[in-house]
């Protein structure tokens, strides 16, 4: 049951992720990316990380992708005015893509072969557990990342006011 769900979910994840890259229309790319985020949230749910799954949906599908949609809608990107890339750039793209593939292949080869198993019903993904961890063990990184976000916000406001 769990394995079947996992396989279906993974298939959807891969299909939507591929269609993000291959869609001619920028709007379809954005929509497939949203669908992809949903399937990833599904994976989190299967790992008993309810909190992570829902925050993933709120932040990525709910907030960031809405801004992406905004930009795509306003720019009105079409297939006709797509910029033609030069041959040199295409070569560079193929070579760098191949190199990344090589690295991925090497890292997956050296990884231990593992069988997918559903974890036991734990509370590791619950809000209480994450809160405890964040505010005890990872207090400093948490605070630093908050300050980073705050400075980004202030910076954005400053730029917008100019």
């Amino acid at each position: 049951m769990g394995l079947v769900t996992f396989l279906i979910l993974s298939a959807f994840t891969i299909i939507t992720a591929i269609s993000v890259v291959f869609a001619k229309n920028a709007m379809y790319s954005v929509l497939s990316l949203i669908a992809c985020f949903f399937t990833i949230a599904g994976h989190y749910l299967m790992l008993n990380a309810e909190f992570l799954a829902i925050v993933h949906i709120i932040v990525y599908a709910g907030a960031i992708m809405v801004l992406f949609l905004f930009v795509v809608m306003l720019l009105n990107l079409n297939t006709d005015n797509e910029i033609q890339k030069s041959l040199k750039l295409k070569f560079a793209g193929v070579i760098s893509g191949g190199l990344i593939y090589l690295i991925l292949l090497a890292s997956t080869q050296s990884a231990l072969p593992s069988i997918y198993e559903l974890p036991e019903r734990t509370s590791i993904g619950s809000v209480q557990e994450i809160g405890m961890k964040l505010f005890n063990e990872y207090m400093l990184p948490f605070q630093i990342s908050s300050i980073l976000f705050l400075s980004a916000m202030v910076g954005a406001l400053l730029l917008a006011k100019k």
């Binding site: 909190f51 829902i54 925050v55 949906i57 709120i58 599908a61 709910g62 809405v66």
Partner: peptide, 9 residues
């Protein structure tokens, strides 16, 4: 949070 996600969508 589920309600909040649905509102966001």
């Amino acid at each position: 949070l589920f309600v909040f996600a649905m509102v966001a969508l």
